[in-house]
Simulated scan of single mutants.
Amino acid sequence: MTEPPAETAIGAVDLHKTYKSPRGDVPAVRGIDLDVRPGEFFGLLGPNGAGKSTTIGMLTTLVVPTSGSARVCGFDVTRQSVEVKRRIGMVSQNNTLDTDLSAFENLEFRGRYFGMSGRDARRRADELLEMFNLTDRRGAEPMEMSGGQAKRLMICRALVHRPEVLFLDEPTAGLDPQTRVNLWEVLRELQKDGQTIVLTTHYMEEAEALCDRVAVVDHGRILASGTVEELKGSAGADTVLTVAYDGPVPDDVSGLRDRDGISKVELSDGQVRVFAHEPDGLLGELVALGSSAGVSVTDASQLRPSLETVFLTLTGREYRE
Rank of each mutant, 00 (worst) to 15 (best):
E208Y: 07
E208D: 14
E208H: 05
A209W: 01
A209F: 04
A209C: 07
A209E: 08
L210R: 07
L210T: 09
L210F: 01
C211D: 08
C211Q: 11
C211M: 14
C211I: 13
C211P: 15
C211V: 13
C211F: 09
C211E: 12
C211K: 10
D212P: 01
R213S: 10
R213C: 02
A215G: 06
A215P: 05
A215Q: 03
A215V: 08
V216Y: 03
V216M: 10
V216I: 15
V217K: 12
D218A: 06
H219W: 05
H219R: 11
H219K: 13
H219A: 11
H219M: 05
G220T: 09
G220K: 13
G220M: 06
G220C: 10
R221N: 09
R221Q: 09
R221G: 01
I222T: 13
I222V: 15
I222N: 04
L223C: 13
L223W: 12
A224M: 10
A224S: 15
A224T: 08
S225W: 00
S225I: 04
S225R: 15
S225M: 02
G226L: 07
G226S: 03
G226M: 08
T227I: 05
T227F: 12
T227Y: 02
T227V: 08
T227N: 02
V228E: 12
V228P: 12
E229V: 11
E229P: 02
E229G: 05
E229N: 11
E229Y: 10
L231K: 02
L231G: 00
L231M: 13
L231A: 03
K232D: 01
K232Y: 07
K232M: 15
G233D: 14
G233C: 02
G233E: 15
S234K: 14
S234C: 08
S234Y: 00
A235Y: 03
A235D: 02
A235F: 00
G236V: 02
G236K: 04
G236M: 05
G236W: 02
A237Q: 12
A237P: 05
A237G: 15
A237L: 02
A237R: 10
A237V: 01
A237I: 11
D238N: 14
T239Y: 07
T239H: 13
T239A: 11
V240K: 00
V240P: 13
V240D: 15
V240I: 14
V240T: 01
V240C: 09
T242S: 08
T242V: 09
T242L: 05
T242A: 04
V243K: 01
V243N: 12
V243L: 05
V243R: 08
V243F: 08
A244P: 04
A244D: 12
A244R: 14
A244M: 03
A244G: 02
A244S: 12
A244T: 05
A244N: 10
A244Y: 00
Y245E: 14
D246I: 04
D246E: 01
D246W: 01
G247K: 06
G247E: 11
P248Q: 08
P248F: 00
P248A: 14
P248G: 12
V249Y: 05
V249N: 00
P250D: 04
P250A: 02
D251V: 07
D251G: 10
D252Q: 12
D252E: 15
D252C: 10
D252S: 13
